[in-house]
Design a protein around this nucleic acid. Structure first.
Lengths: 158, 158
DNA sequence: CTGTAGAATAACATTGATGTAGTTCTCTGA
DNA sequence: TCAGAGAACTACATCAATGTTATTCTACAG
């Protein structure tokens, strides 16, 4: 039998590496509730399952990666069930407001192999695209100044 | 001549799609200063270059993706010069505290092609690894409960 | 030269996420 | 049964990021 009745709040926070305040706050604000038994007044005990620990750890990884709780909440709302399957073969791919569970070690695995933690990828092409579009929209007359991003010409402009 | 003397604060914020308060705060806290001319007392004028706009837009993209300013600051400290080259072929790859500029449309481009915005990727394998290691470290006796993550057995567990 | 628009500045409020300290329960061991 | 430990709860403080409003300059048009 593995860990007779799940994990206490204090055990959970030690294992996951967060403060009790965080664990408590996350439980109260519905981010991650202890699924084995929830609190019901002072003196009662929270009991976290192994699955809960996995989620807590994922939350911490995202927080350490500089991601705000607001986004993490959206991720876990969507994710609630989808974590049942073989967890170790899964990558969470978060793109704006949509979350996907990417299965298998396909395209991006060579990047991921380096280390652990979260990868944040921002394609600058899209950034520049949006920017230029907006400039043209707001200032139809002026052409876009590209001096500092020109390929030929060695990009002067300080 | 493109936009005679860069962009005013108000123009910049309209183009980038942020509030003036944000532009102001970011300038004061050294995140992104107007490189053409900085403020020096009330009544003076900030002047943003096109390059500044690119950076502002990237910051906004990261913010929209749920990333905290603290991390974004680290990214742009590292990045300050490295954005000179051909911007549209570049992806910012943020991994924990390290930032890389990934050039070329290689491995991950098929994922990125879908849409714009930031990709956050969290490999669950690493999460589970860390978790299990910590459990074993703190509770050497108890074996890890894996009921909800088993591959065979169809994963019962509520 | 002068008045006014525009822009930076300043002061204050707010919200989310957390730290800290103290209080109130409940559970368990003696 | 009873006391003490452990855990949830409460209240208050803090910090970053931003909203709001009012104020003070500066630059420019007339």
């Amino acid at each position: 039998m593995a860990k007779e009745q799940g994990y206490s709040g204090d055990e959970a926070r030690k294992i996951v590496g967060i403060t009790y305040r965080q664990l408590d706050y996350w439980a109260r604000t519905e981010l991650i509730r202890p699924s084995l038994s929830d609190a019901s007044g002072s003196g009662t005990r929270r009991r976290y399952s192994y699955r809960d620990l996995l989620k807590l750890k994922a939350v911490k990884a995202l927080i350490d990666a500089g991601i705000r709780l607001a986004l993490i909440r959206r991720v876990f709302e969507f994710l609630e069930e989808k974590l049942d399957e073989d967890v170790v073969q899964v990558n969470l791919v978060i793109q704006g407001s949509s979350v996907m569970v990417q299965r298998g070690e396909d395209e991006i695995i060579d990047l991921l192999h380096n280390g652990q933690g979260v990868l944040n990828i921002l394609p600058m092409a899209g950034v520049k695209e949006d920017l230029d579009a907006k400039i043209v929209e707001l200032f139809p007359g002026a052409d876009i100044e590209e001096t500092s991003t020109e390929i030929d010409g060695k990009a002067v402009g300080q």
